[in-house]
Amino acid sequence: MNRQGMLILAVLGVGAVIGAPFAIPAFITQLSFLWLMVLFALTWDIMGGQMGYNSFGNIFFFGIGAYVCAVIQRDAGLDWHVAFFIGMAAAAALGVIAAAILGSGMLGLRGQYFAIATLGLGIAGGEIASGWDYIGAGSGLVPPLYPGALGAREMFFYFLFLVLAIICFFTLRRLYSGRFGLAINAIRDDEDKAESMGLHTTRYKTIAWCVSAFFLAMAGAGAGNMIGFIDPRDVAFAGLTFGVWMVLMAILGGKGTLWGPVLGAAIFHITQELFWTYLLGWQRVALGLLIVVIVVFFPTGILGWVREHYPEKFGQAVDAEAQGAAMGEKAEP
């Protein structure tokens, strides 16, 4: 694809995501959830795809974010917007701190041990939250209602998640093209060699988890408000829905790539909205089955499959891009 084509595509894309809520206002909530799903998949892929560390407990940071923000909104007594954004910042900060503390201990472990260690994380979060009266215990929390006119609330959350997802995407793109991306790829490919070159592996791994937690906690802060009710087990620490979806979406699209998780999230969310309800409660069964099928038969995901089968169209472009990125920083060779 040439430069001009890319530009036109980009303009069309920007137009579509901005215009969508106006064009199809009936679907605005589903569209907001789409961006949330993109955030889920992108943040999971930092560890699971780029670094080769499957985390089954990332939902933990989402839950922390939802609660921290809601508690601040409840107790601060400020204007809704001010309280919300302060809450969101606090959520991000606490998410990062939690990831740093947990990570500095758990990320000294190698991948398979880390994976199992994270399994209980979301559940432990849910248990604690549903036993803690200060945050509403089992009956959950209801964040203060958005003050704007009818319809404005939906618009607000749509654009909130859109902006978050875009910031996340470009932050990761930037990080992946630099030292961080190279280091976590090296950890995935051969951690022992990385150590023997003096890499601060645990530090890099912890940073990766902190980046995940940063965006997930903010997403949690927003989602708690958008959903309007924070249930400890079914919204905040929803391991069986959101927690599993993250994994599925990233591997469906193609883990270890930038666009894969985005693609996976979009496809998963759209099919879910279209067909899921016809499964009459068997969705979650299908979910498990889908993970098995993808992992076993399409381990590289959609993007990986496309690249394998049409290398001249997609494989090449990526290499050229990588070359460009490497050369970009350099004066004319």
Binding site: N54, F56, Q112, A115, L240, V244, V247, I251, R284, V285, L287, G288, L289, L290, I291, V292, V293, I294, V295, V296
Partner: peptide, 11 residues
């Protein structure tokens, strides 16, 4: 690990 994770959800 991922495959048996999917299996566990399924069962």
């Amino acid at each position: 690990l991922l495959a048996t994770f999917g299996l566990s959800i399924f069962l």
